[in-house]
Design a binder for these strands. Structure first.
Lengths: 342, 342
DNA sequence: GCATCCTATGCAAGCGCTTGCATTATTTAT
DNA sequence: ATAAATAATGCAAGCGCTTGCATAGGATGC
């Protein structure tokens, strides 16, 4: 029953077959210039015949590079990250890199563990998006020390060198808020993320500034900060809808919380967008399908992932360290959840 | 500017430091029973001090196992696959496996390419979900020959040995269709996937049988088969809504096509669910947020992924070949898009 | 007190590939 | 025709770790 695992075909087998040395075979397969076309042809033919397939493990060991890129992201479930991942994959494959992926589930502990794994796996480079809670980034120190480039996107830390691909979160929130203001909203609330994360504190700043620049008061109870879980969004709505003066506009710090907020508002019997305009920071496919369709500021996930890995690969190939910051443009998508008031 | 990559710390460094042999160090680090507790302690301490981290590449080469599992799926963007991936990841990590992931984007060519890559990477096992088009599965032959287990879920081929995790697609469609029938629908249409895929042909069969068992006619124009893209769904709706006798119930073969169908119906001015009931085969989070919320048959993605890798790991560890078929239960989720007629 | 047995450790080969250097065969220049 | 350069291939070490077998003490048995 146990399958008799036959020995792998190696370059030695090819060498023996042709009565040449393994090194010649290796060079032939790698199209080394010093090998004659004739032998290359022969070697490749025999390799084909024997069903030879390069052992990447052995190759990695001797070349001291693995051709794999590690990816650390909070979670694959979010559409933003799924898109980023697609962008990463695509470019990686194009360049002959394999990708090993880990999720942190927003846990700093797991993030640390993942860096250890990536280090052990001797990845040639790393692209990651930090958890919302990550403050201390010393676990990325190993890579700097060993000269392994680390590209970060979205949730980044400028304390670790390497390319950064970000979006202007201040602008995103500012634009979204101003959009609601232009629509005539006067009492605008914001469900924000944890303030320890720059992404979310920037959004909160953008929100605040948009209000003050437009001479609207910031009502303290209208600025809530949370982990942005579904329950958090529901709780926020419960609070807001019980206020004597309910908000007439809400800026949600994430796509998913925006969805929940809209849904809660509708269940509470509110007329959207007449009584309440909603816009979320982050767009998901679903936003188009709900009623009313949800306005959003779109963050270009695919593009960010793709740029991150593109820069990473440059760093790897040219053995340079590039700590440039790339700012990706965002798009205001006006849909039916935000509506001219009064 | 070029970072002076210092040599890696190896077990030899530890050995030298302690004046013992590298083999002892290796065994100590692996908690080999023949090594005294005393030396284990010393070795680990020094390893810690020096910042030693096992080189998995070297380890893999000498052990002839990599501790990585390859995953081949059509695309990460779909929620079903994202969930499956999460299940796979979780279990893999628990067991100390790394996961390398590739998307085929429903291209058979890419699927073949990916098997080559996985083979080169010498993965210890493979879990995959075939493309909709895959008929010939000879590219999986290498793994069988080498005794590398391959677990398949959802879109599987019984022509390749290994654990299969599936759902009864016939039943899913049958149940969904019968649900609409029970609601009083008389003119039920089905937007199906490509018939070359067992998943979708089973669904079509289930749909047909539910109709005939309930003495409802199958109107030929009510059974459409497609790639299930957004455009396909839109096209189908255009056809159906232009019919003199429009359908009063639709079974969509995928979550995303269901969403598009519902959205098209609403734009066309139909009253959902009064004039048209909709149910989709496959559930997404979004289904709860749209109006009306979309009924669906839920396919347990996370669970399927998790079971697939669990069985795979068993095969790896026990060096057995298990071609069992695991049938995962589906759930009928009745929401507001399907509604008592008449 | 000597043969016997553990216990803990070391030796060295080997995993499959790459690569600097040496070597041989073949041209080219003089 | 001979030195010098060039082209094509081979040798052997090395990547870092694992592991079968050998070995050296120390404990045990009678």
């Amino acid at each position: 029953m146990s399958s008799k695992e036959k020995r792998e075909i190696t370059i030695n087998d090819i060498a023996k077959e042709l009565n040449i040395s393994p090194s010649t075979v290796s060079r032939a397969l790698n199209d080394n210039a010093k090998i004659s076309e004739a032998t290359k042809k022969k070697v490749k033919a025999v390799a084909q015949d024997l069903g030879y397939e390069l052992n990447l493990v052995a190759s990695s060991l001797s070349k001291n590079k693995t051709n794999v890129i590690g990816v650390i992201i909070p979670n694959i479930g979010s559409q933003f990250f799924a898109q980023a991942l697609s962008g990463i994959q695509e470019k990686a494959r194009e360049n002959g890199y394999n990708v090993i992926i880990c999720q942190t589930n927003e846990s700093v502990e797991q993030e640390k563990e993942m860096t250890r794994v990536m280090n052990s796996a001797r990845v040639d480079g790393l692209v990651c998006c930090l958890t919302m809670e990550t403050k201390d980034v010393s676990h990325f120190g190993v890579f700097e020390k060993k000269g392994i480039p680390v590209a970060m996107f979205d949730r980044v830390s400028y304390a670790v060198p390497g390319p950064k691909i970000v979006v202007d979160n201040y602008e995103a929130a500012y634009t979204a808020t101003e959009h609601l203001i232009n629509l005539g909203c006067k009492r605008i609330a914001h469900l924000g993320g944890v303030t320890s994360s720059k992404v979310f504190s920037d959004r909160i700043e953008g929100f605040k500034d948009a209000l003050s620049k437009n001479d609207l008061p910031l009502m303290p109870q209208f600025l809530l900060s949370s982990d942005l879980t579904e329950q958090d969004a529901r709780d926020a709505m419960r609070i807001w809808l019980n206020l004597p003066e309910k908000p007439d506009g809400i800026v949600a710090a994430s796509a998913s919380s925006g969805l929940v907020i809209a849904s809660s508002a509708k269940s509470a019997g509110l007329d959207l967008p007449e009584e309440l305009s909603i816009i979320s920071l982050g767009n998901e496919r679903c936003n188009e399908f709900v009623t009313p369709s949800l306005s959003a500021v779109d963050m270009p996930g695919f593009d960010m992932g793709k740029t991150a890995i593109t820069k990473l690969i440059e760093c790897i190939k040219e053995e340079k360290v590039d700590s440039s910051i790339t700012l990706k443009p965002i798009r205001l998508l006006i849909r039916n959840s935000s509506f001219k008031h009064k």
